[in-house]
Simulated scan of single mutants.
Amino acid sequence: MPTENRSSNTDPRDVFIRLNPLGLGEAELRKDSTGFVDQRTHSDYLLFLAGYRESHPEPRHHAEPIAWMVGTAIWWHKDGAERDYEERSEPMIPLGPCDSPSEIARVTAQFKEWQASLTATTAKPPTSAMNCADNSTKRADCCIPRAFGSQTG
C-alpha cells in the first residue's frame, strides 16, 4: 500500500477512492458533503478511515520542557534553574519530550562537552548526570534520566 500524505488538505475519501480496496464501481464511489452517497460504501469507508488514521498518526508537536536539570537538581520553574545555572558551573538541561534523534544527539553532545570540561579540571561529574544515549530509558520520546524515573507519552 503506498504511503499517503496526511496533511490537512488531503481528504481521506480521495485516498479511499484512489486505492479502491473493495474494487467498487464509479457509482458506489460518489461522494456527498460528509461521506459517500451509497450507505454501504460509507460504512466501508468509516472502517477504512479508522485504519487509515491508526496507521498515519498526526505528527507530534515538540512540547516545551517540563523541567530543567542543573547538576543533580531538578527545577520545575525555569527561573530557578537559570539562577542555579548562574551560580554553578554545570549545564542547564531541559527535560521533557524529545522525540527526534537529533534532539537526543544534541543533549548527549551537550553532556559530553560538559563532562570533558570537568575532566580537564580533574573534577568528577555527578553520577546522575543526564546522557540520553546512555542513562535514559532508551526511548526516543523521553529524556528523563532513570535516576529520576521516566515519563512516557
Rank of each mutant, 00 (worst) to 15 (best):
S7F: 02
H56A: 11
A50V: 03
Y52R: 07
E86T: 12
A116D: 13
A73M: 10
E58L: 01
G96Y: 03
M1G: 04
R30D: 12
P59R: 14
K112G: 08
G23A: 05
A120V: 02
T108C: 02
S89E: 13
I66V: 15
I104T: 11
T119R: 03
Q110E: 14
N9F: 09
D32E: 12
C98F: 00
Q115A: 14
D32A: 01
A120F: 01
P2R: 11
Y85M: 01
R53A: 05
G25H: 04
L118N: 00
H42T: 03
L118S: 00
E90Y: 04
S102N: 07
N20R: 04
I66K: 15
L46V: 04
T119H: 07
H56F: 02
I104H: 00
N5M: 03
I74F: 12
S43C: 13
E28I: 02
C98T: 05
A120H: 05
H77D: 13
H56N: 15
Y45G: 08
S100L: 02
S43M: 13
D11T: 06
T34Q: 08
R6C: 08
P21T: 11
A27L: 10
P94C: 06
Q39Y: 10
E4I: 10
I17M: 09
Y52W: 13
R6S: 12
H56W: 08
A116G: 10
P97T: 00
R13P: 11
V70C: 11
H77I: 13
R83K: 15
R60P: 01
I74A: 03
A50R: 14
G80R: 14
Y52P: 06
R106L: 03
D38M: 02
